[in-house]
């Protein structure tokens, strides 16, 4: 469905130090540098897949999505979406896709969302009956109610985002590029958006690429993740494999019915936290079964819990490792 091969986007950026002298100098002689926003990435995504596209700020995620949706022309390399070359912006292609950007809106600010939906109906040439049915469906699923008849400017951020998503789906796109769709939303609204996105994917078989700084979005929606950093691909695989690769240990939490010394728990793994009645340890996944068996056999264990490290921690470690590697280089 989506195939990227050797995709690059390099920008020529005017560079100027601060100050009047530099400003005057730049009138006559300008200095430029080449910024490699995306520097040769390859991957492909099958129809109906849900893929998380991750990376630190400035990694090139949004640039990649903009090239895949036809907004940006690649410097070199190739991208195809359902057989189309996005930058040609053929109508057939544009009818199949939608890019939802959490920080950009398509809703008309002073008019109710219903007017934007009607405009999209006309532009996407959606038959009236299909439009009415789809809008009803979206209104129910997203609980839009009377929101669609209020001027957009009077809606809260969460309400606006829901209306935005409905507007993006009026034409039933087969490919959804979601760039930070839950940014700024409260927790309950984030959960509602995630549920809706998953349901849309399952019911319509739509292919979905999601970028988000909220790892809960990724964990809830994306069995596969692609990580890029400084424009280059650094991981492509299952989310749990990424976690294992970055943090091979799991977190073992033990609660005791009687005080236990630090030395007694040290044999089980690396101590993160120790109190007489509780200990948190990092244990290699391969050694977890043995550690749990030993704890139950030798210690007064009242309760235990085994969990993966939080995804935020995993990603933060991944990104800081790559930053450190760059600094060394």
């Amino acid at each position: 469905m989506i195939r990227l091969s050797g995709l690059r986007k390099h920008y020529r950026v005017h560079k100027r130090p601060p100050g009047l002298k530099a400003a005057l100098k730049s009138l006559f002689k300008r200095e430029y540098e080449i910024v490699k926003a995306v520097d040769g990435i390859d991957f492909s995504i099958s129809p109906g897949e849900r893929v998380g596209f991750l990376g630190p700020n400035g990694a090139g995620k949004t640039t990649t999505l903009k090239m895949a949706s036809g907004l940006l022309h690649p410097t070199s390399g190739e991208v195809t979406v359902d057989g189309h070359t996005p930058q040609k912006r053929e109508n057939e292609f544009l009818k199949k896709i939608m890019l939802v950007m959490g920080q950009k809106q398509q809703l008309m600010w002073d008019l109710p969302p219903a007017d934007t939906y009607e405009l999209n109906r006309a532009i996407y040439d959606v038959p009236r009956a299909d439009f009415t049915k789809r809008l009803k469906e979206l209104t129910e699923l997203l609980e839009l109610g009377e929101l669609v008849t209020k001027p957009t400017r009077q809606l809260s951020l969460g309400e606006r985002m829901k209306c935005e998503l409905a507007g993006a789906l009026i034409h039933g796109p087969k490919v959804l590029f979601l760039d930070e769709p839950t940014i700024g939303l409260d927790v309950s609204m984030q959960v509602a958006m995630r549920d809706f996105i998953r349901r849309y994917n399952e019911e319509h078989g739509a292919t979905l690429i999601l970028t988000s700084h909220y790892m809960d979005d990724v964990a809830a929606l994306c069995p596969r993740v692609i990580v890029i950093d400084k424009g280059a691909l650094s991981f492509d695989g299952k989310l749990e494999d990424l976690v294992t690769q970055v943090r091979p240990e799991k977190r073992l939490t033990l609660r005791f019915s009687a005080p236990v010394s630090r030395e007694q728990v040290a044999e089980l793994g690396t101590i993160v936290k120790h109190e007489p009645a509780q200990a948190v340890l990092l244990v290699k996944q391969s050694a977890m079964n043995a550690a749990v068996a030993k704890a139950l056999a030798t210690l007064p264990v009242q309760d235990l819990n085994v969990e993966n490290p939080p995804l935020e921690e995993v990603m933060s470690e991944l990104f800081s490792r790559s930053r450190a590697a760059r600094e060394v280089a």
Binding site: L111, E118, A122
Partner: peptide, 23 residues
């Protein structure tokens, strides 16, 4: 393609007029 664009024109004008009224 042209027919689809022409069909959309009345709606574009109608929504544009709503915007003009708003402003």
């Amino acid at each position: 393609k042209t027919f689809a664009a022409l069909r959309a024109i009345p709606t574009l004008l109608k929504i544009g007029f709503s915007e003009a009224v708003a402003y």
